[in-house]
Each structure stands twice: as C-alpha cells, then as structure tokens.
Design a protein around this nucleic acid. Structure first.
Lengths: 192, 192
DNA sequence: CCATAAGGTGAGTCTGATTCCGTTTACGTG
DNA sequence: CACGTAAACGGAATCAGACTCACCTTATGG
C-alpha cells in the first residue's frame, strides 16, 4: 500500500498545492476553514482533495506533523550546547514561542498535547520522545527529578498551548512553563 | 430579557427533563450525543429543546456549569479544615478525582480550562476564583509562592483533564498535579 | 501517436444542527 | 366553569458542511 508508484506529476503538484493552502489557512489561525475553501484556494476540486487525504482531519494532521517535526529536532541541538536543565528550559520556552508565532501552531500543539485523537498519535509520540531525551539527560546529570516521563510532561504542557488569543497570554504561558520547570527541578520540595 | 415571568409549569418540567437527559448523556461520557436523542429521551421534540437552549452548546454549558459550581464550593470547606497548602493539594486532587468519575466531567473540565470558548466563560471564572482563594490563603501563610494567579493555575491544569481514557491516566494525572504543586511551593528553586 | 491507468471533477448524498409556523395547552379572568 | 390568549410544543423543512461516485481528462511509457 505505501508508495506503490511515484505520483504522477500533476498529482504531486496538486498535493503540494493542497498542503500549502491548508498550511496557510490553519497556521494563519483559521482552524475551521471548509474543505471546499482549501480546495478552491489550491485551485482544485474537493474530489481531488479527497483523493489525496482520507478526511479533513488527515489533512490537518499532515500539516501539523511537519511543524512538529521541525520542533522536535531542537532538543538534540540544545543538549549539545547547554546543560540538560538549561536545554529543557529553552525547549519549553521554544514551544511557547512557536505557539506565539500565530494561533495556528498553538492549535496544533494543543490538539497534540491535549487529546487522544489517534490522528495525532504520531506527532504526540515524537514530542514525547523529544521531551524524554531532555528529561533523561537532566536526571542523568542529577539536576532534574527522575520520576516524570516525557509523555507525562507533554500532558502537563497541554494547558500552556491553549492560551492563544487571551489578553496577555504570552506572559501567562511563560509563567506556567516556569512553574512546571520549578516543579521538575531536582531537590524541589516534594508534595506530601 | 432575563426572568420576565416565571416559567409556565409544563415549560419548567420540560426544561428540567432536558437538563437531566443531557446530564445523563454528557456526564456518562457520550459527549457528542445528538440533540434529537437528548430531546427524545426527555420526551420532548427538538423544537422544545431549542426553545429552552439557544444552541446545543448552550445546553452543554448549562449542564457543566452546575458540576463546576459544586466543585467550587469545596475550597472554602477545605480552607476551614486544613492549612492552605494542604487545602490546595486536596483541591487539585479533587479535580482529578472528579475527572475520574467518568469521562464526562473530564471533558467538561477540559473544555473549561483549555479553551477560550465564551460558552464556558462563566465556569472558567468561577474556577479561577476558587483557585485564587486557595493561592491567596497559601501565600498569606507563606507556604505558597505569590506570583501565580488563579486563572494561570487553571490554565496549567488544562492538560491534566485531557487524559481521560488513556491507559494509566489516573496515575499520570496525579503525577502532573504533584508536579505543579511542587512548583508552587514557596521556596521551590526558581528557574533562572 | 495511442492506449490506458492515474488523476480530476463537482453535483449529489448524508448526517446532524437549527428554524419556522401551525397546533396545543396552561392559566388568569369574568 | 368556560374562554381568550400568550406561552409552549411538535416536527417537517431547511441549512451547513463533510464526504462519495460515476464520468471525464490527461500524463506517460511503449
């Protein structure tokens, strides 16, 4: 089923056009753009959209996965350049800033972190792994507590990414991030 | 517009029936029950449902608001019985347990905490206030840091309530709660 | 060039929320 | 206890938006 033949030239072109139109719509913040509109602005008919993407959600997922993939390359770089707890701190703030770029990415992150939708399984796994790498490095260095897993931390961050568009949300997001980091620090006073 | 005349007897009866049918459906976990089904199981036609509730969402909100109101009476009791930081701890765990009762409440809390939907403005405000009371008491007693607001904490908890149905989610939820509490403790090492 | 399979089209279907108006009913009044 | 009337109700009709399918168009490899 996967990759039978290479796509025909026009098909590949249309697929790209669709993804690009969808990216523009979704990352621009308009998360509930109609499929018809996406198809139209890609210069194709809905039938074509559905030839390339199983459902509307599948298209959404494809767009967001690429964004998440980008983000997930960051931890390795950060770990090379910084102490583990600092790398962790920077990564979390990076998430916030990405969410800040536009409402769109925030919606993506939220969907990924705050739902169980199988549509985002893949992205969720990648993010979880990225966080796990950071946490492991930190606890190996003794600066981060070792009883929190990547996926759990991912869940904890869910709320941060739901803030878009509130007055003063960026500050609030940073504050929550800090709060979580403080809780993660090795030697934090533990709740009874 | 608000409270012109008292509702006619049959109207009040139907309204109650609708709310009760909706509560049963939503809190039972089936968050996307069709309006037709709710109306039917309340023994009423859709037209009647729409006479009482502007939209489907409005009905959802009404159901959830009541649950949230219940929950929001807890902090005062807890503050009477326990030291502020303990009261805070218990309240957060109470949230988790409420989410545990069934997926329904979890969905409610998630919607409330993790979105900006004006539909939940009211519930969100109440929860924010409840948390503020707890935080204020804690920081007055010097056991809780004073730079986190109720609404911010509410946001931070958003992820916790999105866990329902995952394998082992209850443990994960408790762990995240603990993590946040640790970050809140006065004297926690602060992130740089 | 042609055959033909891959790809595209868009009107039509389906599902579910919301509306609208004719009918029924509660209840204050004489 | 009728009766009039505003308030409620019912439910078929409408609307919205995702998704399908039977038929047409076009790359492409031989």
């Amino acid at each position: 089923m996967p990759s039978s033949r290479p796509l025909r030239a026009d098909a590949r072109r249309n697929r790209e056009a669709l993804l690009s139109a969808a990216r523009q719509a979704f990352l621009g913040g308009d998360t509930d753009t109609h499929v018809e509109d996406i198809a139209r602005s890609a210069g194709v008919a809905v039938g074509t959209l559905y030839r390339h993407f199983e459902t509307r959600e599948a298209l959404v997922e494809e767009v967001y996965r690429k964004e998440v993939d980008d983000l997930c390359t960051a931890p390795d770089d950060l770990l090379n350049r910084h102490a583990p707890d600092e790398a962790l701190r920077r990564f979390l703030l990076l998430l916030v800033d990405h969410a800040a770029v536009g409402r769109g990415m925030s919606v993506a992150l939220e969907s990924i972190m705050a739902t169980d939708s199988p549509v985002f399984d893949d992205a969720r796994t990648r993010m979880g792994d990225a966080l796990t790498r950071l946490l492991d490095a930190g606890s190996a260095a003794g600066t981060v507590r070792d009883d929190v897993s990547g996926p759990t931390l991912l869940r904890a961050l869910g709320g941060v990414c739901a803030l878009r568009a509130t007055e003063g949300w960026l500050d609030e997001a940073r504050q929550i991030t800090t709060l979580i980091l403080d809780g993660l620090r090795h030697g934090a006073p533990r709740a009874g």
